[in-house]
Computed example of a mutant assay.
Amino acid sequence: MYTDKKIQPRKALQHIQPYQPGKPIWEVQKELGIDRVIKLASNENPLGPSPKAVEAISASLLGINRYPDANATNLKKVIASHLQVQMQQIIPTNGADELITLISETFLEEGDEVIVPSPSFSEYDFGAHLMGAKVVHVPLGIHFEYDVEAIVSAVTERTKIIYICSPNNPTGTYLPKEQLQQLLDSLPEKVLVIFDGAYSHYAEAESYTNGLEFVTLGYPIIVLQTFSKIYGLAGIRIGFGVALEEIVQSILKVKEPFNVNMLAQEGAVAALADREHIQKSQEINKLGREWLYRAFSNLGLHYIESMSNFILVKIGMNAKDVYEKLLAKGVILRYGGAWGLPDYVRISVGTPEENAILIGLISSTLQNED
């Protein structure tokens, strides 16, 4: 048996911690020996996948002995028509997570700097550390708002990439269009902005932008989108990016040839056309979000108004204890400790029934804590 520790991983891995996803339903069911589990931890669509996507995937199953279209030509054509951009400006990927890694592999050298407003999605840090780059965290404001001046002030000669998640995960806050314009106009031309719009379909504020207009205007910006949220296709992993053609061409040099599987491509094409499912998803999210706001207020809990399909709720010093007690009762939330927010939990908006069960359990748990 080999015991000598001569095979060493890259030094960059010393800064990387594996991503910690929310517990899957089956695992909680097995641990607790219960049938009903309510998962409000991963910001998934509580209505399920687009029915049209399911139909398209089912119709494609007999073709899975063939490799998928490496260029995802039909999907890019449909996305281009949907967003009014050129096909050459689109890069489909195995979820937006893969695109974050590909961007890092394409543009980052060891010693480069990446600016990440904090708290935000942990995969931005992962991609940077993977390439030996330094992550510069710029704290959000006291109400978790973006501070454009602080971001610009953090830029140095080594800055290569700035990440903007809007609406931001886990806070639900967003960067208004005017401030995004200000940021882009204030940056050196060599700095690339990654605008993660995974939750853009839920944003309703008049001042919100999904970033695509700035791609059209020729700014060095990559807009990330996913089919995991509003379209309900998280399980088949598909997302895409939109940017200037020359930026996309550079990323294609590091992309695996068959990174998006056939079923994902077919499902995504169908989901884009399923307006009924999109509208229903937006409606149930809006109604559920407003209902939860009122319920949290009645419980005396502070929350952050969200432009997304989740709400960041301040429980207090006992937040982890409340999270664990709800988990023991079959309700999965996301504890905020991983973001440096130990007093908070992030709660995905569920169905009306799920939301009601959640509030009932939080209420009884908090009463027992007193």
Rank of each mutant, 00 (worst) to 15 (best):
M87T: 15
P49A: 06
Q181R: 15
L130S: 03
N355S: 14
S348M: 10
A59T: 06
S200G: 10
K77G: 01
R346Q: 11
E256G: 11
I162T: 03
P342Q: 10
R36P: 02
Q367R: 14
D185H: 13
Y2H: 12
S60C: 02
N94H: 13
H129Q: 06
K30I: 01
I79Q: 00
G267C: 12
R158T: 11
P170I: 04
I362C: 10
S207C: 01
S281H: 03
M87E: 15
Q17L: 14
T106W: 08
R294Q: 15
V114P: 09
E353D: 10
V78I: 08
T216Y: 05
L62I: 05
G197E: 05
A203G: 03
L233I: 03
N261E: 12
I115W: 05
K314W: 06
V85A: 10
V136M: 12
H137L: 08
P46F: 11
L13K: 03
S306L: 00
H302W: 08
K76T: 04
G267F: 01
V155E: 05
G132A: 05
A328V: 00
L32E: 10
A295F: 09
I164E: 10
F240P: 05
K52L: 14
N318P: 03
H129T: 07
A12M: 04
G288Q: 08
G197I: 05
I34H: 06
I57N: 00
E354K: 10
K76E: 00
N285H: 02
Q89I: 11
Y67S: 03
R294E: 15
V254S: 03
L272A: 09
N259Y: 01
L224C: 04
E283F: 06
I347D: 06
Y174C: 10
R275P: 02
A268N: 08
E123D: 10
K229P: 04
N368K: 12
I238P: 03
E27R: 13
P9I: 12
P139C: 08
P342R: 13
H15Q: 13
L180C: 12
N318W: 12
L263P: 00
G232C: 03
P68H: 04
D196E: 11
E123S: 12
L326P: 12
K52G: 14
A56T: 03
P188S: 11
I142W: 12
N65C: 09
I357Q: 09
